[in-house]
Simulated assay, not measured.
Amino acid sequence: MTTYQGPVTVVGSDVEATMQADLSVRARDQTKIWSGQLSGYEDADMFKVLTSDTAVMRLPDGREGRFVLEGKLVPGQTSVGVLGSGPPPF
């Protein structure tokens, strides 16, 4: 299993915010998917990401991956689940 823990820049709508990520790749059937958690964000920034058509996660080395948020965003929560789309950026 491939993992990444560290800072990421999340870009969505008109937001570009630095957050902490805890991500991993796992096999589902015969397909590899990536997912994890984002933390260390401002509620207003994450709401804008949630309502954007496309959210992108950028690692410090410049690699990027598209993702969607999993579940509902509740004000004041400390982390949110993400599900990647396409190849993992790590």
Rank of each mutant, 00 (worst) to 15 (best):
M1E: 10
M1S: 13
M1L: 09
T2I: 02
T3F: 13
Y4L: 06
Q5S: 07
G6C: 02
G6W: 02
P7W: 03
P7Q: 05
P7R: 12
V8L: 13
V8P: 02
V8I: 04
T9H: 00
T9F: 01
T9Y: 00
T9A: 00
V11K: 08
D14G: 01
D14K: 03
D14I: 03
D14M: 04
D14A: 09
D14P: 02
V15Y: 03
E16V: 08
E16F: 07
E16Q: 14
E16H: 08
E16Y: 07
E16S: 15
E16A: 15
A17I: 08
M19I: 02
M19F: 01
M19S: 01
M19E: 02
M19A: 01
Q20D: 13
Q20N: 13
Q20T: 14
A21R: 02
A21E: 03
D22I: 05
D22L: 05
L23E: 10
L23D: 12
V25H: 05
V25P: 06
A27T: 15
A27H: 11
D29A: 05
D29S: 05
Q30S: 04
Q30M: 05
T31L: 11
T31Y: 10
T31I: 11
K32L: 06
I33E: 09
W34H: 07
W34F: 09
S35F: 15
G36N: 12
L38R: 00
L38I: 01
S39H: 01
S39W: 02
S39Q: 04
S39P: 03
G40N: 02
Y41A: 13
Y41V: 12
E42H: 05
E42Y: 04
D43P: 08
A44T: 14
D45V: 06
D45K: 04
F47T: 09
F47L: 14
K48Q: 14
K48R: 12
K48N: 11
K48H: 13
L50A: 09
T51A: 08
D53I: 03
D53W: 04
D53G: 12
T54Y: 09
T54M: 04
T54D: 06
V56E: 10
V56Q: 08
V56G: 07
M57Y: 10
M57K: 04
R58W: 01
P60I: 08
P60D: 03
D61C: 08
G62K: 03
G62F: 07
R63Y: 12
R63W: 11
E64Y: 10
G65W: 07
R66G: 08
R66L: 05
F67W: 14
F67H: 14
V68D: 07
L69P: 09
L69D: 03
L69Q: 12
E70W: 15
G71N: 03
L73I: 11
V74F: 01
V74P: 05
P75Y: 14
P75L: 14
P75Q: 11
P75K: 10
G76M: 09
G76Q: 14
G76N: 14
Q77L: 11
Q77W: 11
Q77S: 12
T78F: 00
T78G: 01
G81H: 13
V82I: 15
V82N: 00
V82L: 00
L83V: 15
L83A: 15
G84I: 15
G84T: 15
S85W: 00
S85K: 10
S85T: 08
S85A: 03
G86T: 12
G86H: 12
G86V: 10
G86P: 11
P87W: 04
P88W: 13
P88V: 09
P88T: 14
F90D: 03
F90L: 08
